[in-house]
Design a protein around this nucleic acid. Structure first.
Lengths: 240, 240
DNA sequence: TGAACGGTTCGGCGTGCGCCGAACTGTTGT
DNA sequence: ACAACAGTTCGGCGCACGCCGAACCGTTCA
């Protein structure tokens, strides 16, 4: 079987703790420098440089050199999607055996960036609200923005012009912590951008976790009817 | 970053030539015995047994023991999807540098099973035809069967009842050889099954390649208007 | 011009793991 | 009962690769 060769290379690149940690950090959507990534992965800068070089050579990462810094980022949405799908498999692998339940972990479960859109309980709640009010449709087979929804989201500040790069417009993304869908694609990215611009959510340092500001809580409730006050039911795996 | 642990394990499992070869073989959708997989991967049975044990433990494969044989298969559509997405990334990685172009390879490019549905030029041609005649809709954001299409496919022999396991009904799957979409999900699986039942396509031994019979060629043309006679334009990357 | 700093390259060390053959278990058939 | 065969377990070998520190290159300030 000759067809598997490149698959092995790509998977092996992801299948190393240091590299996977750096890739996971970059799944936040931002660009990070080599030193930052070395720090996050707990390895020396020289080792990180080697890893990053290999990831760039394999086109999993892209790099831009500005001033004396090298900024690394996920090379394409295809790579982000691959990492998501691996995470989705990895999440079922452990049948809830040992959940560390650290504060760190809880913050990620509540809200985080998933490449360039919002995931976690917040991401799923937003998706639920938008589906309930008929702004978007979202099911196992795909997603779309309704005509009414287009007007609503444009009024909200989203740029819904189809991007040139032919990237996917609106699709469901399986949330590994909630095991339900949130909104990805161009629409998901625009929603995330708008919320950041408004100060409704803030990035935390050195993590993909997002912080929901009081303004964000009330704003999302007012704008879309997003309800985050289900009485601590986060332990229930809502798969419906 | 603690969240990446399982991802590393899963990716590392795929990132080994022998294991990836076995997984790729099982992407044909069938169950295979340990000895068959050992032969395909060019390793001893003892080594294969170790690999298979790890893959089962990690829930990437499932096994059923019947008589004195162990039959291994892909554990879930989620795993199949992950492998697809890795393949999609691996396919862009090499910018058409060295294409082996073996007969083996060509057969896979023409038609193959992708877990449980049809891929390759044939799979894409079927998808194109069904979209053109309005049987299904298929774009970057998802897929669906139209009302007219439901009647047509049921008349064709497909069982379009929503499966109990809540698996995805109709979705686009990025074909790594054609770099365009073919039909996956429950609908894709039913189409594949109907064609196999009719003798329109046949599995080849020890490979995921499919053979299109003369009856299949005329049958697909008559039933859905599938056209495979584009004048050897397979060298052109049609991304539109 | 030199010091500080980000990043990369290189040489060498240690180990994890993929591999096999041999031995063993369990099933099938004669 | 024994031989044949599918599959697994175990012990040991050898390589690949992940790691680091030191040296080196370029940029940016004093």
């Amino acid at each position: 079987m000759v067809a598997a060769a490149n698959v092995v290379e790509v998977a092996a690149l992801v299948g190393d703790t240091a590299r996977a940690t750096m890739l996971a950090a970059l799944m936040g959507g931002q660009s990070l420098t080599a030193s930052e990534l070395a720090f996050l992965a707990h390895i020396s800068r020289s080792t990180a440089s080697e890893h990053l070089g290999r990831l760039v050579e394999a086109r999993l990462l892209a790099v831009t050199r500005k001033r004396r810094f090298s900024y690394y980022r996920i090379a394409s949405p295809l790579v982000a999607r691959m990492l998501e799908s691996i995470k989705a498999v990895a999440a079922i692998e452990t049948p809830a055996r040992h959940q560390p339940r650290s504060a760190q972990e809880d913050a990620l479960r509540f809200a985080r960036t998933c490449y360039d859109h919002i995931a976690g309980r917040l991401g799923v709640a937003i998706a639920d609200a938008l589906v309930a009010r008929g702004t978007v449709t979202l099911d196992d087979d795909g997603g779309a923005v309704t005509d009414m929804g287009t007007r609503e989201l444009v009024a909200f500040g989203a740029n819904l012009a189809r991007p040139a790069g032919k990237r996917i417009f609106c699709r469901p993304c399986l949330d590994w912590s909630e095991r339900r869908y949130h909104i990805a694609g161009h629409v998901g990215a625009e929603l995330c951008r708008c919320c950041l611009d408004r100060g409704w959510i803030r990035r935390k340092r050195d993590t993909r976790a997002l912080e929901l500001t009081p303004a964000g809580r009330s704003g999302l409730a007012a704008a879309f009817g997003v309800d985050l006050d289900f009485s601590n039911a986060d332990s229930v795996l809502r798969t419906a």
